[in-house]
């Protein structure tokens, strides 16, 4: 088939289609961490309607870094996401101090938050967001047979070119027991739930 072989553009990409899509499980196995008594967190990926467990790997000061079985990590501060590594288009860093203060105090109002994302050309892209924080009232969060009374706080954010809605369910001690938080354009919305 000479016609087929004429397609030299195919040649350029021929090696691509045969590429392995394997993920080396370089991260510590969650099962191990859980069995070692490390705390775990349920994480869901909204766009895919799938979920997994992540285990607490490292705590440094207020920063808790949780890792998944395939080696991605999410760093939280007081239950709020501050950074991701290995999700793609990662949130390299952030300043969520104003949001965090308003949400943990459950005080509605307008705050500013900053995210820095990694783009496809290995550059850090900084974004500032104006966020409106609102108290949406009491909600019960079911954990198996029991349900925990919680307060739902919404954080509605927008920058010039991006917008997202984060939701946090705080129990009576003020701890975030469940949340949905935006991890950037690539990773989308993640949901978190503590495992009691």
């Amino acid at each position: 088939m000479r016609w087929a072989s004429v397609i030299i553009v195919g040649l350029l990409l021929a090696s691509c289609s045969a590429l392995p899509g394997v993920t080396p499980g370089a991260g510590p196995a969650v099962g191990n961490l859980a069995s070692q008594g490390k705390p775990v967190l349920q994480v869901g990926i909204l766009s895919k309607k799938t979920g997994t467990l992540v285990a607490l790997d490292t705590v440094r000061g207020p920063f808790e870094t949780w890792v998944s079985a395939d080696g991605a990590s999410i760093t939280m501060r007081d239950g709020m996401m501050v950074a991701t590594r290995g999700l793609g288009g990662d949130m390299l860093g952030s300043d969520i101090d104003e949001s965090r203060a308003a949400i943990t105090r459950r005080s509605p109002g307008r705050v500013t938050r900053f995210h820095t994302f990694l783009d496809g050309e290995n550059r850090a892209q900084r974004r500032a967001y104006i966020c409106d924080i609102a108290d949406r009232g009491p909600r019960d969060v079911p954990f198996g047979a029991v349900s925990v009374p919680a307060q739902l706080i919404a954080e509605d954010c927008a920058s010039q070119d991006q917008a997202f809605l984060n939701l946090y369910w705080l129990d009576q001690s003020g701890r975030i027991v469940q949340s949905r938080q935006w991890a950037g354009e690539f990773a989308g919305i993640l949901t978190f739930r503590i495992v009691p």
Binding site: T58, R60, T65, G86, D90, G120
Partner: peptide, 16 residues
């Protein structure tokens, strides 16, 4: 790229 920054494993987080 299909995955900006890649989807390889996370770096080790800094410990105290």
């Amino acid at each position: 790229p299909p995955v900006p920054g890649g989807s390889g494993s996370a770096p080790p987080a800094l410990v105290a």
